[in-house]
Structure formats: C-alpha cells, structure tokens
Amino acid sequence: MTQDEPTGSQKPSRRGFVELCIGAMGATSAGAVAYPVVAFLGRPASVEGVTTIKVPVAELQEDQARYVDWQGQQIVILYTGRTPKVLSASCSHLGCLVAWDNVKHVFHCPCHGAVFDDQGRPVSGPVSKPLAAVPFQLSEGNVVIG
C-alpha cells in the first residue's frame, strides 16, 4: 500500500478502515451482479416433466413412423400392421437421428449411412447393434410408454 501506513501495526488506521469499507462495498456489488448472472447460466427448469406418453393405436398409420420426445430422448413408434414397435430413434453408431423410409421399409441414418430394418436390426453400415427397444404396454387401444 502506501508508505505512511505502518505494516503490521495493531492500531487500525483511518486509511485502512476506509479501504476496507470500499472493498466490502465493491465485493457486495460484485456479488449482487454475479449471483443472478451465474444463476442464469444454469440449467433452466424443464418444461417437459411428462414421463408417460400415451398414443392411441387408432391414430397410428400403417407403415408410418411417429417420432416423439420421451424423457429427453427421441423415440419412434412404428406401426407395420400387427403390433406397434417402439424404438430409440438415435442410431446405435454415434447417435444421429434415424429416418424411416416407408418405401424401402428401413430406417436410414443420415450420418454414416447405417440401415436398420423395421425391427431395428442392423442391415448395413458401420453398425452391429440394433436400435434400442423402448418398453411399452398396450392398454385400452393405447400405446403407453413409460
């Protein structure tokens, strides 16, 4: 600090006191600004909150895939006539979103060209694992997931 302030002296000097006050005020203001800013950068309260999804089977169209958000992941409900099938829509290679091709009857991954059949089994491409199956129940004509 300054020379006129004896270092290590027991008696608090007026200058030291003023400096302390200014420091405290500065720290309080900085904290008051930093707190909301840091909080803002945190995770927002999620809007989903829904953990169960119900889709009436009657709404599903044959050979059409229906993509839904479920617990933060994309899943696909596929109806090929008999019973619906629910699969994770993210490719078992590196997780890109697979697209249903209802002409060729396969899932196609846009990233590195993996192909899966309508059961989610790998057909070709850089994959060996199938698309993860999502457990669901059929109750009163609804596909209930979760």
Partner: peptide
C-alpha cells in the same frame, strides 16, 4: 415466457 418463468433469474435479466 420461457426466459421469464423457467430460466433461473431469467425474469431479472
């Protein structure tokens, strides 16, 4: 609305 109601301190900012 999301900023105001879901983001922490979003209403303030």
């Amino acid at each position: 609305t999301f900023i105001k109601s879901n983001v922490p301190m979003g209403w303030l900012i």
